[in-house]
Write a protein that binds this DNA or RNA. Structure first.
Lengths: 205, 205
DNA sequence: TAGATTGTTAATCGATTAACAATC
DNA sequence: TAGATTGTTAATCGATTAACAATC
């Protein structure tokens, strides 16, 4: 294990490897090589080897990587060898889709609470969850020790809600609002904005 | 205007700038500086100036950038000074949320068709769209000249559907399926996978 | 004018690739 | 063993930052 700081760009690729390896495992594969994994995710074999070797010697010359073993290691590194409780804030269309999404649970995440500030939504069911009043959000998150949240509120409310989440102890925010939100050091934000992603492709068309 | 090839990493930041500038314009602001824009999006002022200057001299010493002018230029560069028809494939929860999303139209995109291969969904309404049979997809996309698609089908179907989209002339795919899809040169893919984004943050927690 | 801020250069910093000894 | 593939090194390539003359 290497104690030096790992660049964020490498951390960003690990979940991609993890996803591909999980899929290989589902298909009954037992081993893979940097070449094969690279072809799968569109990254060079050299880079895959370099990235993985930051964390230890997980492969074997001649035979490559054991898929179950590498899966274990990557899950451990990314800290998804446990289950993270997630708060979902915003019970609109996107919130509904996320609340009903089946893909979180086997990747380390479990939505445990859903909030909205619209009183007409509070008490209603969204997926298997009952929408709670956003006014109780900070308190509930603090009490439950939730560290991860998904934000699907309008852009106009996003910064304010993010501030409250941070205040309540949330350390990672997945932001679906189409606006850059600012958070203190030590809090991570990931942005998902479909229009931004589309605009990144049209340049090349 | 610089005729050299612009790095993809710069292109990727332009939509972020565009989004922030649009918001500033909505708030009635007329000018901004690289410093102010940078604070807004969390990028250094030097980098913002460098990025923008790849495409021309859009600022003025002493006063910064005219927001409406820079908006125009960025939209032109990213080719979102026009409206792109978008095909949505997959009428599940995520497809529903995207079909009803109001944020595309003022950012250059307009969903014009929705497909699903589930016969029980064909003919049903999703947002304001009637779901069409995926069997007619290639034909419809070709006839309409659609170049951009959003993919919200299960991972097991994603590669196959992507191949059909490419065959039909689609050049940009926004992939919501949790799997890396491979496409020929000249076709762009952007991946949106919430679990992957979350896993990128847990490392730091 | 004086102050502010751009566009650009050069220096620094960081990431990727190619190559290969080690070894399974 | 012979073939395959890792982990790592050094070289290359690319991106970011700092600084400042130009100028609005």
């Amino acid at each position: 294990m290497n104690a030096e700081k790992i660049p964020d760009i490498i951390i960003g690729r690990l979940p991609i490897y993890l996803r591909a390896l999980q899929r290989m495992a589902d298909n009954g594969m037992k081993t893979t090589s940097s070449q094969e994994l690279g072809d799968n995710v569109g990254i060079s074999a050299a880079q895959i080897r370099k990235d993985i070797s930051q964390f230890g010697e997980f492969g074997k010359q001649g035979t490559g990587y054991s898929i179950p073993y590498l899966l274990d290691k990557l899950r451990e590194i990314l800290k998804v060898d446990r289950m993270w409780d997630v708060a979902l804030v915003g019970a609109g269309d996107m919130g509904h889709a996320l609340a009903r999404y089946q893909g979180f649970v086997n990747r380390g995440f479990c939505i445990t609470m859903v909030f909205d500030n619209d009183k007409s939504k509070v008490g209603q069911k969204v997926g298997e969850f009952v929408v709670e009043d956003a006014a109780t959000m900070a308190e509930r998150i603090k009490a439950a020790g939730v560290k991860v949240a998904m934000l699907t509120v309008p852009a106009s409310a996003a910064q304010e809600v993010a501030d409250k989440l941070v205040q309540a102890g949330v350390k990672g925010i997945l932001n679906y609002a189409p606006i850059s939100i600012n958070v203190p050091n030590g809090v991570k934000v990931q942005h998902i904005d479909p229009a931004t992603h589309l605009q990144r492709m049209t340049y090349y068309l």
